[in-house]
């Protein structure tokens, strides 16, 4: 701060307070409404909680399938986080610590995926999820492998590959764990690791995997933790993908669950329960961001370098 001006201090704190109140208003109001008894008038303006918050939260919790949906969201968020970190660490290790013919090709293949979010390839990605082996089936059909195999075996061979990922945890997680961003983050980090460490490890007779697990991995924990916070929120908040590949209510995630409880038109709404559900769905990721704020900010900034 350069000048001491009381009006400027007042402006600073005044603006921050107004901004913070505006930003927090939707959740404050959601809490207020979630604390109202059933059948209270929804278009009246309430400013103070109505004392039924825990009752409504309990009702929302006990509502059909919500516990299960929260569990699904948890599995999906943790699965996506662990999966992305694991395969990105391995890829980044491969492209920074090995010389091999298709190194740059691999690098560019991973890079290009930045340009292919699910949203631009919705229908065909869904088709693949309905049968994850379809690409291999198409290759088999194209190469007429069935006929070759039939000729070799001396009788008709019918190859039918099918593996549906619909309504499964694998389906919720697997297609989302490829990550250009995470791979580049770890690549960037590995490039800053002193060369001497690898040299020393080699002299001491450590192979590549031993170097990876004993030296590189322990050194990466900070980046991993920061990235994990971002990825957990990314996984928890997915919408389009679970919407596409889950049809059964028991397999869907809580975010979809909240969207489904939104009343349409003038239907008889239980807004207090809807808001209680929204609060339960939002609590885990918000808690992660607020409690791990330092990691969150680091992860956000690192991921975009």
């Amino acid at each position: 701060m350069i000048e001491r001006a009381h009006w400027f201090d007042r402006l600073t704190y005044g603006a921050l307070i107004v901004g913070a109140i505006l930003v927090c208003m939707p959740i404050y109001y959601a809490v207020i409404v979630a604390s109202m008894p059933d059948g209270s008038e929804s278009d009246a303006v309430y400013l103070l909680p109505g004392g039924h918050l825990f009752e409504n939260l309990a009702n929302a919790w006990n509502k059909e399938g919500l516990g299960r949906q929260l569990f699904n969201s948890g599995v999906m968020a943790v699965g996506v986080t662990v999966g992305k970190i694991a395969i990105s660490l391995l890829s980044a290790f491969a492209i920074t610590y090995f010389r091999f013919r298709f190194r740059m090709t691999a690098f560019w293949l991973i890079f290009i995926t930045l340009m292919l979010p699910v949203e631009v390839r919705i229908v065909p990605t869904f088709e693949v999820a309905a049968n994850a082996l379809a690409p291999f089936q198409a290759i088999i059909d194209l190469l007429a492998i069935e006929r070759v195999a039939g000729w070799l075996a001396g009788h008709e061979v019918d190859i039918n590959l099918e593996w549906s990922l619909l309504d499964s945890y694998t389906g919720l997680i697997l297609p989302l764990i490829a990550s250009a961003t995470a791979t580049f983050l770890f690549r960037q980090f590995f490039l800053t690791v002193p060369e001497e460490l690898c040299e020393a490890a080699k002299i001491d007779g450590a192979g590549p995997m031993r170097f990876f697990f004993r030296i590189l991995l322990p050194m990466s924990t900070t980046s991993m933790a920061a990235l994990a916070v971002i990825l957990f929120i990314f996984g928890w908040n997915q919408y389009l993908w679970p919407l596409l590949i889950t049809t059964e209510p028991e397999m869907t995630t809580v975010v979809i669950g909240v969207a489904r409880t939104l009343p349409t038109e003038d239907a008889d709404a239980q807004w207090n329960l809807t808001m209680a559900t929204a609060i339960l769905a939002t609590l885990p990721p918000v808690a992660v961001v607020l409690l791990l704020q330092r990691w969150f900010v680091k992860g956000l900034v690192d991921a975009e370098k």
Binding site: V23, I27, Y239, I256, M275, P285, V286, L290
Partner: peptide
């Protein structure tokens, strides 16, 4: 100011 980042777009819409 930071916490809305953690709210899912669909839930933000609901709020």
């Amino acid at each position: 100011l930071i916490w809305p980042y953690a709210v899912a777009p669909a839930v933000a819409g609901a709020l």
